[in-house]
Design a protein around this nucleic acid. Structure first.
Lengths: 300, 300
DNA sequence: CAACGGTTTTTAATTATTCTAGACAAAATA
DNA sequence: TATTTTGTCTAGAATAATTAAAAACCGTTG
């Protein structure tokens, strides 16, 4: 029980690597220096030094730390398989919801989720606490958590919110200076759209990715941590729903390409009014698509 | 150690109260019914029944549950002082940051905070995880948390984001039907503004509250969970900074009253362009005020 | 006297434990 | 027999206990 000694294990291996670079009989730097190298506290460094001494790799007496022999591969400590799950938990969680079409008002079991995502429970709890800020999940009175979205209401509000942010981005974009990298990006995107349009009969599946890239590019002009935070969630949700609503997929995507191109045209012409109008049109289409894709699944 | 039996204690007292309402010798309803009454699971209800039987308050044999005697005050279980802190933790935490002007990049000790706010540690951790979604705090590499805001960058982005949301609200507002309650609310607010304007020489401190009410009213037109969530944080921050920046407070507030009235005028005239312009002017002033109040404190 | 190392105290991450919720099937009621 | 109620059991959530790590403290040393 209790905290793992992963940090110690990792630090020890890092210090071994460091020692491997040294000349024989070389002196090791001060403990505080070793801390910086391994990225841990002195407590851990001293534990590592203790083991290095024990193994006869170094001599250590007060400030006197000398390398005795070159460390071998066998000296390393094994790490009992690090679960890297913690990193992209958000992505995986949202994918799970959307992929399995988890219905609204589903009780979420922290224990079960922690197992299936291979993360410690408390990490999952903190994650859910974070999501509750977006109104996606909520605490239940009798304990535990519960998935709230994706109801129709959620989708409507999400779309509206997205629209507000994106229209603002468009207004910003028109004002961007000529040498702003966004213009080159837009030109590249235009080309990609045209290419896809030519091959739409066969490659219409590829649109979803292009759509994401397009909207990400628009929003990249607004440098705002709040916008960025929301964008991550929003784009993921729209992305997946685009993928799964198979009705008239080709037609929808072809139409969307046209709408995207209209936005690019208006932007490059620096015509704010036209750009906003075009963006509004496209966002409305997106919203409709999202809602209709819900209608198929959502029975609640 | 481990989980408290608070639920059991509370449920027991509730059931005592319920028994007190019954006739002598009356039969108690089914366990599942008692669950509804006490708002807990059957497990807890059965534990309560066990104690009630033990204390000679009821007879309990299978389905046969009869009241033997009227419960007395002495039968209640004491609750070892419930810490109600959990409720308004957010409010208190933000107040703490702003009141003591905690500088950016301060390491936050969960243990210490949990003590001073009188909440369990894990609750505070979940709270911080939630705040990290707003970019106010972040995890540190070596463990624990750290306060990021309020830097200048944070204030700028917060103001900009607020402006985007609020301008959208204004645009919505102009379209609101005549019988929408917002119009009556705006009239009331106009009157309050005029009253305060007349007494500005002495009562200028009262503006902060009025400002909050005004912005809350504007945003109330947009029914959106994302907007609402942000609004809570945003309004609190602006509220406090308004309070603490004492330079030219009277003049600032008087000017702001004028700006508010201009917005109300334009809204009631259903003049979208004028309303947006007026709102934009006021939001710009607000931003400037927020930034200048930071300049006094922020040395980082 | 400034950097370094030994020691101690405090904090954070994780497990273990207890209480609670929910499910199932047997039993009782109608 | 159909329906409700209860006894029993399993899994889950909240919290305390525990160990690793961080950080503070203070004497030492070059």
């Amino acid at each position: 029980m209790a905290r793992t000694d992963m940090r110690y294990r990792d630090a020890y291996n890092v210090l071994l690597d460091f020692c491997a670079e040294l000349e024989p009989e070389a002196r090791l730097p001060a403990e505080s220096r070793l801390c910086e190298i391994a990225g841990v506290s002195r407590t851990v460094v001293r534990r590592c030094l203790g083991r290095l001494k024990e193994r006869g790799i170094i001599a250590w007496e007060g400030r006197d730390k000398r390398l005795l022999r070159r460390p071998a591969e066998a000296d390393r400590i094994a790490r009992p398989d690090g679960l890297q799950g913690s990193a992209d938990l958000e992505q995986r969680f949202l994918e799970w919801i959307l992929k399995f079409d988890v219905p609204a008002n589903t009780p979420l079991s922290v224990a079960e989720l922690a197992r299936s995502f291979e993360v410690p429970q408390h990490e999952l709890k903190e994650f859910l606490a974070g999501l509750s800020r977006f109104g996606l999940v909520a605490r239940r009175r009798q304990g535990g958590w519960m998935l709230l979205g994706f109801t129709r209401g959620f989708a409507v509000e999400l779309s509206d919110f997205r629209a507000v942010l994106e229209l603002d981005a468009v207004r910003h974009l028109v004002e961007a200076p000529v040498d702003h990298p966004i213009w080159a990006r837009l030109e590249a995107l235009r080309a990609e759209h045209l290419t896809l349009k030519a091959r739409i009969e066969t490659d219409f599946h590829a649109f979803s990715k292009l759509d994401e890239a397009f909207h990400a590019a628009l929003n990249s002009v607004v440098k705002n941590r709040f916008v960025a935070e929301f964008q991550k969630v929003v784009s993921l949700i729209f992305h997946y729903h685009y993928l799964w609503d198979k009705t008239h997929e080709k037609d929808r995507n072809e139409a969307a390409i046209g709408e995207h191109l209209a936005i690019i045209d208006a932007l490059e012409a620096r015509d704010e009014e036209a750009a906003v109008a075009a963006a509004r049109r496209h966002l409305k289409t997106s919203k409709t698509t999202l809602l209709s894709s819900l209608r198929y699944h959502d029975l609640a």
